[in-house]
Amino acid sequence: MIKVNAIGDACPIPVVKTKNAIKELNGPGTVEVLVDNEIAVQNLTKMAVQKGYEIQSQKLEEQKYQVIMTVGEGGEGMEKQEDTAEETVCIPDSRNHKIVVISSGRMGEGNDELGEVLMKGFIYALTQQDELPETILFYNGGAPFTCEGSPALEDLKQLEAQGVEILTCGTCLNYYGLSEKLKIGDVTNMYVITEKMMQADSIIKP
């Protein structure tokens, strides 16, 4: 693994440093990048998607984010020598004033097992969007998604690292006995949930 410290670096330096580190791999391998803001994470994520790298990201603490890119066997996603500096651009914040509301562990009506698979797939698909929601609200049956044992934790960590606010209803956590098991985001209340919904340009409920 090659480690890149880009904390304090302005765009496009984190992307440039990461591209150089990937070239140093000269084959399959992993690059870990540390940055201090969500926009840098968004830029690195966009680059990874374009190049075909596997990527994971998470917020470690305030103003410290970890991005891990993996180049696969056979050199998938390797940087090409003809890549030019013009390809390295600073994208604007990709978050928009949309709210995603997840109030169930399942998506749609019908088979419960299928519904659970669909909801997990929906959360993953959010990580692949060019425009991200500003906030994801979890309440009632959706509350366990932010807690220990959730199948969506890694996807939610990646979204949080890109600046998406993750909020879970505190009353719901208490009801389900999950107050001590929250692993991602913050606890919220019905006043904040209502305020977020009222101020949103649009609300998406899968």
Rank of each mutant, 00 (worst) to 15 (best):
V101T: 03
V101R: 01
V101A: 02
S103Y: 02
S103V: 02
S103T: 02
S103G: 11
S104E: 07
S104V: 01
R106E: 04
R106M: 12
M107I: 06
G108R: 03
G108S: 04
E109H: 05
G110R: 02
G110Q: 03
N111H: 11
E113H: 07
L114K: 11
L114C: 03
G115N: 00
E116H: 01
E116Q: 09
L118H: 00
L118E: 02
L118K: 05
M119P: 00
F122T: 02
I123V: 12
Y124E: 13
Y124R: 12
A125V: 08
A125R: 12
L126W: 01
T127G: 05
T127H: 06
Q128E: 14
Q128F: 10
Q128R: 14
Q129D: 11
Q129R: 15
Q129Y: 09
D130T: 15
L132I: 10
P133G: 03
P133Y: 06
P133S: 05
P133I: 03
E134H: 14
E134S: 14
T135Q: 04
T135C: 13
I136M: 11
I136F: 07
L137S: 11
F138R: 04
F138A: 03
Y139Q: 07
N140Q: 15
G142R: 08
G142M: 09
A143S: 14
P144H: 05
F145Q: 10
T146Q: 03
E148N: 07
E148W: 01
G149L: 04
P151D: 13
P151E: 10
P151N: 11
E154A: 15
D155V: 05
D155F: 15
L156I: 08
K157M: 12
K157L: 06
K157A: 10
Q158E: 13
L159V: 02
E160R: 09
E160P: 01
Q162V: 00
G163K: 02
V164W: 00
V164H: 00
E165H: 09
E165N: 14
I166K: 00
L167W: 09
C169P: 11
C169R: 10
L173E: 03
L173D: 04
N174M: 12
N174G: 13
Y175P: 01
Y176N: 04
Y176M: 08
G177W: 10
L178N: 10
S179M: 09
E180I: 05
K181A: 12
K183R: 15
I184G: 02
G185Y: 06
G185V: 06
D186K: 15
D186Q: 15
D186R: 15
T188Q: 08
M190H: 12
M190Q: 13
Y191Q: 15
V192P: 03
V192A: 14
I193Q: 04
T194W: 09
T194R: 13
E195S: 12
E195C: 02
K196D: 01
M198Q: 08
Q199L: 11
A200C: 04
D201H: 07
D201E: 09
I203L: 10
I204D: 11
K205S: 14
K205V: 06
K205R: 13
